[in-house]
Design a protein around this nucleic acid. Structure first.
Lengths: 147, 147
DNA sequence: CAAATACCGGATAAATTTATCCGGTAATCA
DNA sequence: TGATTACCGGATAAATTTATCCGGTATTTG
């Protein structure tokens, strides 16, 4: 559905959000990669994208790391994360790969997938990172496999 | 959403279906690739998968080519095509990449994506290649871009 | 039977995605 | 100020996906 990069990006930002909401704790890369079970260096690349897009905040040096500001917690949606990493392909492109699929010239599944895509967009648009962080904090959601 | 291979596979099988329904016309690779605007050799690989899976029929030699039997037209669903090419990843896997995402240990978006995935499965399960071929035949759907 | 046709299947190459490495820079702290 | 910490960013490598090539085999037709 999403690329690996995007999966890591979503999980990472939710974890960062959880720690930020929890007494404003800043988290380092090593910590993040361990907690969401992702490759450290690759996760760093993905986080750089999110930082550049203004969706995550980073601080260098000792006591540095990644965090979400109160505003980021409140306003950053999953949709923004996905767009920053994967672009709009999955959110807008034709399921059958037609370059211009529209009501004028629809693929045979245009309207069926329009409905699915609408629902996907709705889910991504209406969930903030902060909200999902809360869910993880309350033990109602997980970011990696616990055996 | 789907891989390129899968996009080609779906478009190709619908086109084959359309020609088969239309006076049982068998179609060759060159023809298919031209009609759905896909790379010929790669499309051949994808079609081999579908033939091996029993979803498409092929005939060698002159006057040979690909076709869908009456039964294939009636019974083969998009879901079977997608499974044969992309496997169950998109249809079953966790959107956030967790190896075992379930009600026992759900990702923070488990139930939201469950709904989306259900709808996707439903669309793929309830549409046969033959039905979509009819839609294309009636000019209600297209398999490539016509400028 | 011989020639032509068209799918089959293995090998190979190009492109993209995923993943790693390492020196550079900014920030903290003693 | 000097040492350490931790993100930044470019280069590189591995893995996967996408795409191509070409000889092999089955089938039709003359």
């Amino acid at each position: 559905m999403f690329s690996k990069a995007c999966e890591y990006g979503i999980r990472a930002s939710i974890y960062i959000g959880q720690q930020s909401a929890d007494q404003g704790r800043r988290v380092g890369l090593r910590d993040i990669a361990a907690e969401i079970d992702s490759p450290e260096a690759f996760t760093a690349k993905v986080l750089q994208l999110l930082v550049r897009a203004g969706l995550v905040t980073s601080v260098k040096g000792p006591t540095g790391g990644f965090e979400l500001t109160a505003e980021q917690l409140r306003t950053v949606t999953l949709r923004q994360i996905v767009l920053a990493i994967d672009g709009g392909e999955m959110l807008q492109g034709c399921a059958l790969g037609l370059r211009q699929c529209s009501a004028q010239q629809p693929c045979p599944l245009h309207y069926q997938f329009l409905a699915i895509r609408d629902q996907l967009n709705e889910v991504l648009r209406t969930h903030t990172v902060g909200e999902l962080a809360g869910k993880v904090h309350d033990g109602l959601g997980f970011l990696r496999q616990f055996s």
